[in-house]
Design a protein around this nucleic acid. Structure first.
Length: 879
DNA sequence: GCAAGGTC
């Protein structure tokens, strides 16, 4: 047996570094091998993989989509090949002379499989060294030491469960994806994919869209009035009816009854308090963050799921927060909340709040726990290493504070609310009139299957008001992301008379269910067991990339509907969450030794064989349907010249425009705005029968409308001259170019409207002179009497929204705009956020070039809270 | 070029 060093293998570099630190007592040194860190101390080496370093795939003879029938993939062999050559070869080199190997990958099923992959790579070069497995769910001194003191063996059954999943996912995914793509002749980048996770996720979105489309709105009425004590503030109360089962109804489903009740309400000047109920309610602090809860909270701050995960990843690699991909909602025993709170109390933003939790009278700190306790990683929480003032961008800072405050909240006391419910009976004529109405009709909800309930004994017209008051702010003191708004209803007594004013009846309609937002979808996926903490947000991204959903909240395209329909008809399994559930059961059975890998994969292949029997017969019909949908997703409406369809197309340069399906016979086109990606809306133009277009461009998203209307408006609009062109007009200072053309060619500046919908101030001699200044897309532009002395141009005023705003001189405006852009250019440097950029601008640094050429010591003297080293750091990063 | 699952 070899007497070489002992080798420890982890799932990722970060874990390798920390484990080396713990086991070596801090003496480990790092060394690069093939771009991989190897940590070294005494007779030990520790290397981190990068998740799976080998992948499953078919042999190369199956790689041509046209040569191989998709059905052949079902029984094709599946191989494992290295996908991370550098890491694999480093591992082989280290393993060759290792005397012992310890697998320390993550403590979950996928970690066991990654461990087995490492095991096999080791065995290829070293037949003898004993190979152990250690398991721990958080990388802390105690857990790691205990695990290494008592190592275990790899669980080959558990790893085999993971391998079964790999093979089943690959065969189903590849065979069906190729089948759909080939049948619709979509072979380039626009192939049509399906899989065990994207299938049910897409069906979830499409099913909701079907519900929305099938929804039939129902009219109803609600009545309100404002009550007040003498001299007191008014508070809103709502009409309701209560039956003998104690059920309350606020909605009136009959227009005539609503009319009578409105009359009754009008007849009352005051109302007598009939009932006052007061109770306190405990509002428990939130549970620790797992990935899904974190994505949801970041979502309510306006971050997409993708963005939230990438920021968390940054914070993790920088060492400020723990691993962001976790299912766990229970802190490990090792976590000392008191110590962590002490470390956090050093921060300027949340330090006082952290300290306030340490100062509580009862002294005890007992963090909350969620329902999900797993072995993978701890819940996401701050590490206690505080970032410096300029270490984070603004977004990173905001998200970091969210994670910190979530931790604070889990250590904070519950909040206490007082709920106050007041019921008042309208006085005067109201009762008599109200009793004329058929209150049964008022209470009858068409959706209520229980039938008509008995009425409460007393008639009349009753109003209720619900108030809530925060008695103990509790965790809200440290966690401002959940509403702690109060609704004040004053203290009143039974029998007290309140005056009634502000009576109103609101006509409403029932609303269709809402589309799922991104974080809501991820929550649904988790609830249904579809995907994992590390993949759910990526699956969503994939649906966007594949052209299955657009916009936010994601809306399915026609293509998505056709794919789901085709799957429902022929391969229901792949759009059903039951596929994952079944697989999960099989994996449990393999892990428990009750079923074999071969048995499970063979059964899955048989099922896929049967799917293909039906599918093959309908190949053409499915292909036609998919192609039709692909075209429908791009169709705006009829071409005015030839009657074919107008389609959204993309030029070779990448810009979007509207072109005719009859091209090249018909060359009709319309321009689209240059910013954003076009989304075709349901709404259509009455004049041209063309669908409206929305341009998706993040925060700059806007509705363009009917592209033909926009082009017509531009054609009809007169240019409005506002002055001389500074490049070629009267008084222009210098010769324009060496082509002999001189200044003072008589060019004038005019407000112009382009066919693409944008507006600008440009030279009347365009295209000979291309001087131009941008104008906002929205609002009426008024040319005022006021003149800019510097540029001899009128000030402009923009009328959009409620208040007109002053754009001022268009040249000055553009100059300010450019300055702002330059300022924000600073933010492209890692570590510089909005606030830091502002400070730098205050010191006269407005662009990256200026930053690079600045003297670090001088600049540090001019900017608060920034040292020369930080400046040098920025300068290095800006290069 | 297909999936889903790791990690960066």
């Amino acid at each position: 047996m070899s007497r070489g060093p002992e080798l420890i293998i982890t799932e990722k570099d970060n874990a390798a570094r920390r484990i080396a630190e713990i086991l070596s007592g801090g003496s480990a040194t790092a060394e690069r091998k093939n771009d991989v860190n190897v940590y070294k101390w005494g007779g030990k080496r520790c290397i981190g993989l990068s998740g799976h370093v080998v992948g499953v795939d078919f042999p190369p003879e199956y790689s041509d989509w046209r040569d191989v029938e998709p059905v052949e993939l079902i029984d094709a062999p599946v191989r494992k090949t290295p996908t991370q050559e550098g890491i694999v070869s480093a591992l082989r080199t280290l393993a060759r002379n290792a005397s012992r190997v310890t697998i320390a990958t993550d403590y979950d099923r996928e970690g066991e499989l990654i461990g087995k992959e490492a095991y096999e790579l080791v065995r290829e070069v070293n037949e003898d060294a004993p190979i152990d497995r250690v398991r721990f769910s958080s990388i802390t001194e105690n857990e790691v030491r205990e695990a290494f003191a008592d190592p275990d063996d790899l669980d080959f059954d558990l790893a085999a469960a993971g391998e079964a999943r790999q093979v089943i996912d690959l065969t189903w995914g590849a065979a069906l994806t190729r089948f759909l793509s080939l049948s619709a002749r979509q072979l380039g980048n626009d192939f049509i994919s399906v899989g065990r996770v994207q299938g049910p996720t897409l069906k979830l979105i499409v099913d909701r869209e079907r519900e929305i489309r099938a929804f039939d709105p129902e009219a109803y009425w609600e009545l309100f009035g404002d009550l007040s004590k003498t001299g007191g503030d008014p508070f809103e109360a709502q009409y309701f009816l209560e039956n003998d089962r104690g059920n309350e109804a606020e909605r009136v489903w009959d227009e005539a009854v609503a009319g009578t009740l409105t009359e009754a309400l009008a007849a009352a000047d005051d109302a007598v308090v009939d009932d006052v109920r007061r109770r306190t309610r405990t509002d428990e602090p939130p549970t620790p963050f797992n990935t899904t809860a974190y994505i949801r909270a970041a979502g309510s701050l306006g971050y997409s799921a993708q963005r939230a995960m990438s920021i968390a990843e940054e914070l993790y690699t920088a060492g400020y927060v723990t691993y962001p991909r976790t299912d766990n909602t229970v802190y490990p025993d090792d976590l000392e909340p008191r110590e962590l709170l002490e470390e956090l109390s050093g921060d300027v933003a949340f330090g006082d709040d952290a300290a306030s939790l340490l100062d509580r009278d009862d002294g005890e700190i007992e963090p909350t726990e969620g329902d999900e306790e797993t072995t993978d990683h701890p819940p996401i929480h701050p590490t206690g290493d505080l970032p410096g003032a300029s270490d984070l961008s603004d977004d990173e800072r905001e998200v970091y504070e969210l994670i910190v405050r979530r931790f604070l909240a889990t250590c904070a006391p519950a909040a206490e609310w007082e709920r106050l419910r007041v019921v008042a009976l309208a006085n005067g004529e109201a009762t008599a009139i109200a009793n004329e109405a058929d209150p049964l009709a008022a209470l009858r909800n068409p959706d209520d299957a229980e039938g008509t309930p008995e009425l409460a004994a007393d008639g009349g017209l009753r109003l209720k008001a619900n108030g809530k008051r925060l008695l103990e702010a509790g965790y809200h003191e440290v966690y401002p992301y959940r509403s702690s708004d109060e609704r004040i209803v004053p203290d009143v007594e039974v029998g007290e008379t309140l005056s009634l004013s502000g009576r109103r009846t609101e006509a409403k309609e029932t609303q269709p269910p809402r589309r799922y937002g991104q974080s809501r979808l991820i929550e649904e996926m988790e609830k249904r067991g579809v995907g994992t903490k590390a993949t759910r947000h990526r699956t969503l991204e994939k649906l966007y990339d594949r052209g299955y959903v657009e916009g936010d909240p994601p809306r399915p395209t026609r293509l998505a509907e056709s794919v789901v329909e085709a799957a429902e008809g022929f391969a229901e399994h792949v759009v059903s969450e039951e596929m994952t559930a079944q697989l999960e059961r099989d994996m449990q059975a393999i892990a428990a030794g009750e079923k074999g890998y071969d048995e499970v994969t063979a059964a899955s292949r048989e099922l896929l064989d049967r799917v293909f029997e039906d599918l093959t017969e309908s190949r053409e019909a499915i292909g036609d349907q998919l192609q039709e949908s692909l075209k429908a997703d791009k169709t705006l409406g009829p071409c005015p010249e030839c009657g074919s369809d107008l389609l959204v197309r993309q030029s070779r340069a990448g810009s979007y425009f509207v072109g005719c399906d009859g091209y090249p016979d018909c060359e009709y086109t319309l321009p689209l705005p240059s910013t954003g990606k076009p989304l075709i809306l349901d709404e259509a133009c009455d004049d041209h029968d063309l669908h409206h277009v929305k341009m998706l461009a993040g925060r700059k998203t806007f509705v363009h409308g009917c592209p033909r209307c926009k082009a017509d408006e531009a054609d009809e609009a007169e240019d409005e001259v506002i002055g001389a062109c500074p490049d070629c007009g009267t008084g222009a200072a210098s010769p324009r170019d060496e082509g002999g053309e001189t200044a003072d060619a008589g060019g004038e500046l005019a407000i112009k409207r382009l066919r693409s919908g944008s507006r600008l101030v440009g030279c009347t001699r365009y295209p000979d002179c291309d001087y131009s200044l941008p104008l906002p897309r929205r609002g009426e532009i008024e040319v005022t009497e006021e003149t800019c002395e510097e540029h001899d141009l009128p000030h402009l005023r923009v009328h959009s929204g409620d208040e007109p705003w002053e754009l001022g001189c268009p040249i000055c405006n553009y100059r300010e705009f450019r300055a702002r852009e330059e300022g924000s250019e600073l933010q492209t440097v890692e570590g510089i956020g909005e606030r830091t950029a502002e400070k730098l601008e205050g010191a006269g640094i407005t662009g990256v070039d200026e930053l690079k050429s600045a003297d670090p010591d001088d600049l540090a003297g001019d900017v608060d809270g920034v040292g020369p080293d930080t400046v040098r750091d920025w300068q290095a990063k800006a290069d």
